[in-house]
Simulated assay, not measured.
Amino acid sequence: MVRSFTIKVPASSANIGPGFDVLGIGLNLYLELQVTIDPKVDTSSDPENVLLSYEGEGADEVSLNSDENLITRTALYVLRCDDIRTFPKGTKIHVINPIPLGRGLGSSGAAVVAGALLGNSIGQLGYSKQRLLDYCLMIERHPDNITAAMVGGFVGSYLRDLSPEDTQRKEIPLAEVLPEPQGGINTGLNPPVPPKNIGHHIKYGWAKEIKCIAIIPDFEVSTASSRGVLPSTYERHDIIFNLQRIAVLTTALTQSPPDPSLIYPAMQDRIHQPYRKTLIHGLTEILSSFTPESHKGLLGICLSGAGPTILALATENFDQIAKDIIARFALEGITCSWKLLTPALEGSLVEELS
């Protein structure tokens, strides 16, 4: 019997304004997996019984080996926690990815969420999104991106009960939860099953008038590099500055009509954006010179995730706002593309086709 289904996972923007490692938005730019399980198809060439194909962003750099690809390795982690060692024979997965890699739009978070959903669907395990978040957060300890990709919309999230060691480590290497095959032979070890409710989240409202302009520079910034420029300690007044604004922003973005005089100052940040200007030339000037007074319809502007993408929230004048930000980047010799996006309110989706 042939079975087929699709998985769609939205891109995400994290660190919204003052919400460093807290606030995220799922965006309607979807990583898609087209999955077919046909026992008549010969998949013996792959040790995990899966034929993987890929198109879109990162096609020249993403591994098609099932024990190296982030999506399939995450799926194997979920499956092996339930004593399912490999994919079923005849598994074919075609990945369509429109999310730029390393640009601050949650490409790795989307891959991890897609992998968790894939393992759940392949194994017919029946896990809820909340339980699958636990598996995802064992691999990538950024709940803002992961939660936005899984449940969608505008979300706030946090991790609970982490040890001091885990609090300092933002990622757990995937090899620690899914051991690498040794010499091409699977070790047969069972990975650690995640505790329940590692992360908690809340979904905020979102004013229907607000759209998201993503200006995407043509270079990558790794999360490790962008975290490396951050200080190890902060001044108390900078922490208070962000806390005050995040308390206002999470309600201000729900109100209709949106109030730029409230939202724009509430999207200021002193925790990460000032330190990342060395990695993204023109960042400081863009964040300070694009205002509701200079550009009609603009509500607020911030770095998306670790960057280099800029996220501008606006109600109108989208083309002009994007073109002017792109022109400012051009003064630094940086080329950009842009997308007009809206919150993906439903989050990730799985659709059985047959």
Rank of each mutant, 00 (worst) to 15 (best):
T6I: 14
P10Q: 07
A14W: 02
I16W: 06
G26K: 11
L27G: 11
Q34C: 10
Q34H: 13
I37E: 08
D38R: 03
D42Q: 10
S44V: 08
V50W: 00
L51F: 14
G58R: 11
N65Y: 11
I71F: 11
T72M: 07
R73E: 08
I84C: 05
R85I: 12
K92E: 15
P98H: 05
P100M: 02
L105C: 02
L118M: 03
G119E: 04
G126T: 07
Y127P: 10
S128N: 11
L137C: 09
M138R: 13
D144W: 05
T147M: 09
F154L: 10
G156M: 09
L159V: 11
L159A: 01
R160V: 15
S163D: 05
I172R: 12
E176H: 10
N186Q: 11
I198W: 00
G199F: 03
G199S: 11
K203R: 12
E209V: 06
I210M: 07
I210P: 00
A214S: 13
I215L: 08
I216L: 09
S226A: 15
L230R: 06
S232V: 08
N242R: 00
N242Y: 01
L243Q: 06
R245H: 04
A252G: 04
T254C: 13
S256T: 14
D259S: 12
L262R: 12
P274E: 03
T278Q: 13
T278C: 12
L279G: 02
I286A: 02
F290R: 07
T291E: 05
T291K: 04
E293F: 04
I301F: 04
I310W: 01
L313F: 04
N317S: 09
I326A: 12
A330R: 13
P343I: 11
G347H: 08
L353D: 10
